[in-house]
């Protein structure tokens, strides 16, 4: 799934990075626990989360997660946007809950991790 399709499906808007980014997202992971994110082994994933702080961006930087979906209308802070742009992470904001975002993306073919 391309970033543009993810945005369309979740009625989202891009907060950082390029919406035309040609990353192919294959799997998704829903979590608010950064320690959990740091144990991931996959690379072509989107992290679906309700967390919106700078540590989130640092964590996905270390875990090589290319795309993050911020749920429930939690806006990305300017610090988050700057850091995401610097590192090259795509940040998408949506008004969907994590539950709904997970449901919609699962039905549209994204796979779980393990």
């Amino acid at each position: 799934m391309k970033v543009s399709e993810l945005i369309k499906l979740t009625e989202g808007r891009i907060a950082a990075g390029n919406p035309e980014e040609q990353i192919n997202i294959e799997r998704a992971f829903s979590s608010d626990l950064m320690s959990d994110v740091l144990t991931l082994d996959d690379h072509h994933i989107v992290l679906i989360t309700g967390l919106a702080n700078v540590q989130l961006i640092r964590t996905v930087e270390m875990a090589d997660v290319p795309v993050v979906l911020l749920c429930r209308n939690k806006p990305a802070t300017p610090e988050m946007v700057n850091l995401a742009n610097e590192i090259g992470i795509v940040l998408v904001e949506t008004h969907f809950s994590i539950f709904r975002a997970s449901g919609v993306l699962y039905q549209n073919g994204l796979k779980p991790l393990y």
Binding site: D32, M34, S35, T39, Q55, L56
Partner: peptide, 15 residues
Amino acid sequence: EMGFGAGMGLPNIRK
């Protein structure tokens, strides 16, 4: 509440 402190740090370092 910041998403840390789940007790996975040191085990993850070892891993």
